[in-house]
Design a protein around this nucleic acid. Structure first.
Lengths: 204, 204, 204, 204
DNA sequence: CATGAATGAGCTTTCATTCAT
DNA sequence: CATGAATGAAAGCTCATTCAT
């Protein structure tokens, strides 16, 4: 007999579904979006979709995991690049600019759902933990070369920094008409001063 | 002679429904909670509930409005009291401690829904705007007496500060096991340094 | 003790309710109209309304009875007046003119409902029977003085004549833009020729 | 390769639903019949039924349209056959005989609903108009060969004739115990005399 | 692999009717 | 006599999920 499934094609289909689902979830929320909408968006019948995911919940979990994994990997890129704080703030601005066209994405939905669906909670906490490791490591390196206050508890500071990304999502919804330059400057100031050693106040 | 309606009783019933609805929404989200659950929680038949609210949406809007109005009024209390920053951080800790028993409430749901339901968006933006006025005023007073950096754009800074409250909700979901003392200290440091004038770095 | 109820006032209230109900039924049909609408139209609370009618059905029956009784009494007036056929056709035109403002009333609803609700059926058949007696009597008088074909079975002819009134309701709904003069002329011709003795073809 | 939809099966299912719905509407009226009843009658789940019709209204419209279309096509058959008037009256008798078992059908409901639901009104008026064309044409042909009064306005006369079919429905409800022979004779006389040229009074 | 027909529990909402005041 | 608060069964409709093809 022939091979049952081509695992590459299988993964591609899964990715297509997740792409479609993310657009639907971003537009209507996890509970507002329907399987039928996702099927239409993915150009796929419901019977076929259920070959790839056993339940709608499973799609939600996959979306939550993928979104958070992307945020983690993007953070790694930024933190190991040049001028991480400036880049991070620029990234936030870039994302928020995207909201004007496509809405704020699913992060807030994940946060809200995490308080209810234990599986989403678990995914969020694990992702946050590994991102925290990443950021805490960055902070420790900064402490070594004197750019970051050695008194900071790196783990706690990392958690706070991560939540500032969430805050920026909230910020762009609560006050969408804020001047972008001023918002960037304020966020940069917030982060820079939080991390800086006591003596001097400006570095990135 | 005959009383037409007793507006006090009417208001009380409405409040009972909103109380019940808030508990249900906090547990299951705006879309996950059902009218039947709210009726059970409020010990009321669906027919009766619909004497007080024309649709489920109307209940969502009322909950969003009430929650945000409470946050605004509590903020006013804190900002006009003694040691506002310390008190604010303490308040955040108090609220987060509550999450362990009752979940994180509906704020994140409001933020997520605001990106979808224009009515919720409007409610959120208006509430945020009036809260921003409040906080910006506080900051301006601080600038006058030298406790806050006169270079800060008070409006932008106010928006950022408000979103830090949202961030603290996210923080307590992403990292529920963080040491409380350290978290408080970090938040206090974050806020204090954000606001302080350039020369000295420690005051509240 | 005092008299329990003033029967005159009681009848007046009943009449007010029936007035209100007829307007609602004409607008929305027997099943489409709600007790709440009737209460609003009669400026009355539902509790009070139920002092006068035990069920919604009872209101329907009363409306059906009243409408049919009115038609019967109006017919009597016409049949015992001068130029009954011309007057009848004029009356039909008058009624149909009213439809343009207020809709076709409840007659068709009564006919439709009579096929389902046995009580309405009974009311309709009894009313029709007594109207038929009236018309048959008119026809017999016409036969005596030679204006009406003595070969006609008066009872059957009476039934057919009555149903022509129903037909005219249907006519004004099916073809609302028909020229009125021509419609009147056609109806008059229909009735006149139906009744006339064989020799001459024109009289009223 | 893969069939998208089998339009034949789809049409069959639609027809089954309409069959079931017609029975329910005939028994309980458009507003009295429920989706659940139609589902039971069609042996189908509500979810499935809504694959074929988007709303209950759409079913009502389809039933109204189908019933009127049938009446129109049947009329065409009769008018182009031999002895149209005798056949028409016989058909009316046949239909009315059916009422004793199955009730008077939905025609009166359509007429009543047409005064309220503009969509039904539109369907009725369009169907009536095309039927009127058919009947008027028949009358004109009769005028040519001298069987029908050339003085008749064919369009108005056609409208009146059509409404006599409605009248016969009403007749069989108002007076179900009328002698059939006599009723047939009276209807035939009504129609024949209405159409006949002035000189002779008997032809079909 | 792929379809879409089919299910049925459950959703929000309505409404005739009752009851305490 | 009069109110309107209160009920709860049932309405129309949705949607995650399954199944025959």
């Amino acid at each position: 007999m022939v091979r049952k499934v081509d695992p590459v094609k299988h993964e591609e289909k899964r990715a297509e579904i997740l792409d479609a689902a993310e657009r639907c979830f971003a537009r209507h929320g996890f509970h507002g979006a329907t399987i039928a909408q996702i099927c239409a968006e993915a150009k796929m019948s419901p019977g076929h979709l259920y070959h790839y995911f056993p339940t709608k919940e499973a799609i939600v979990w996959a979306i939550a995991g993928a979104g958070l994994a992307y945020a983690t990997s993007r953070s790694a890129q930024i933190l190991y690049g040049a001028h991480p704080i400036k880049t991070l703030v620029a990234e936030i601005e870039l994302i928020n600019a995207g909201h004007e066209k496509a809405g704020p994405g699913v992060l807030l939905d994940v946060l809200a759902e995490a308080g209810r669906d234990p599986a989403v909670g678990e995914i969020l906490r694990e992702s946050s933990a590994s991102m925290r490791v990443l950021v805490a490591d960055f902070l420790r390196r900064g402490q070594v070369n004197g750019q970051i206050d050695p008194d900071l508890d790196t783990d706690t500071a990392a958690a706070v920094l991560i939540s500032i990304i969430d805050a920026s999502k909230a910020l762009s919804i609560r006050a969408p008409n804020l001047n972008r330059k001023r918002r960037s400057k304020a966020l940069e100031r917030l982060i820079t001063r939080f991390l800086s050693p006591p003596s001097e106040a400006e570095n990135a």
